[in-house]
């Protein structure tokens, strides 16, 4: 299971809380120390972790002082438990609703992100996902930089039986993007996904190009595709992408591996943007819907109450 390791660690920390005869500051500190260690090991941003520690402490203290515990240890435990749960949910839930494609109209989705993070693969998965739900879906390959990019789209889109557009000779990604989107709009496609080259904030020309593609295709939703294994560079990169592309959703890929995705979670916090899907493999169907609260419940072993990660 995704994040099983982190879940196990958080759980063992919390079960220590249940075993402690009294819940005092010392117990709380020890608990927070363990939880923070588990989060740091999962690549959650160092500053975020220390702010989480302070917030939980402050909340618990305030609640105790206000007498919320009514002097009972069990109540104190619940207060602490809830404070931790809420802060963890906060980490992955910016409280923003992502764009939802609507039938009977074109919905343009543009994928952006760092090199090799899984954009092209995810574009095909997304197109197939919406196609299965009755949207007429297609992909525009606006990556003119990477060797073999159009072949990759052509082969994977063909396998998925999704329409695609691209060129072996045109070198301007803005031109391809706008031609493709115009063509597919005319043909009444409903979900039009624009795949772009990988880029990073240190090269401003690449970011400029992304802005121009965005201006040309006017996406209804831009998605940042982010690798689950990213470490402490996640914050600066995702902030820069947010500023230039104003993405409205995040998809975290490669969650089928051992990575716990803490860097990606930090990107959520840094950009106040929700995660909508997790990529969980190299195959077409390896895409899971994401929602924050069930995700954390599951992580903490609190049960799969709402039939959480539906396919």
């Amino acid at each position: 299971m995704v994040l099983a390791d982190l879940g196990r660690k958080l759980n063992s920390a919390l079960s220590q809380l249940n075993r402690a005869p009294v819940v005092d500051e010392k117990v709380l500190d020890a608990l927070l120390k363990e939880i923070c260690a588990a989060l740091l090991e999962s690549d959650v941003n160092v500053k975020l972790v220390s702010s989480l520690r302070q917030k939980v402490k402050a909340k618990a203290k305030a609640a105790f002082e206000a007498g919320a515990d009514k002097g009972k240890e069990a109540n104190r435990r619940n207060v602490v438990h809830k404070a931790i749960f809420d802060e963890l949910v906060q980490l992955v839930d910016p409280g923003v609703e992502p764009y939802k494609p609507k039938k009977g109209q074109p919905n343009v989705i543009m994928a952006v992100g760092l090199q090799g993070n899984g954009k092209t693969t995810t574009c095909t998965k997304l197109a197939a996902y919406y196609q299965r739900r009755g949207f007429k879906s297609c992909i525009v390959c606006a990556d003119t930089f990477r060797a073999g990019a159009f072949d990759q789209t052509r082969q994977s889109a063909s396998k998925a039986k999704v329409s695609f557009f691209g060129s072996y000779t045109e070198t301007d990604p803005v031109a391809i993007a706008s031609q493709g989107v115009t063509k597919f709009k005319k043909e009444r496609f409903e979900v039009i996904i624009v795949d772009t080259s990988g880029r990073h904030r240190q090269e401003s020309e690449l970011f400029q190009e992304m802005v121009q593609i965005g201006e040309a295709v006017k996406p209804d939703m831009t998605v940042l595709v982010l690798d689950a294994s990213i470490g402490q560079a996640a914050e600066a990169q995702s902030r820069a992408f947010k500023e230039s592309s104003d993405f409205g959703a995040i998809i975290v890929t490669k969650m089928d591996g051992h990575a716990k995705g803490g860097g990606a979670i930090s990107a959520v916090a840094a950009t106040k943007t929700p995660i909508i899907f997790l990529g969980v493999g190299e195959h077409l169907a390896d895409l899971d819907k994401f929602s924050p609260q069930p995700f954390i419940s599951k992580l903490l072993g609190m049960g799969d109450v709402q039939g959480l990660m539906e396919h």
Binding site: E41, S42, D43, L114, G116, D227, S229, I230, G231, Q232, A233, G257, H258, A259, K260, G262, G263
Partner: peptide, 8 residues
């Protein structure tokens, strides 16, 4: 990749 965190 230099981007990788604890997974390295």
């Amino acid at each position: 990749e230099a981007l990788v965190g604890n997974e390295a």
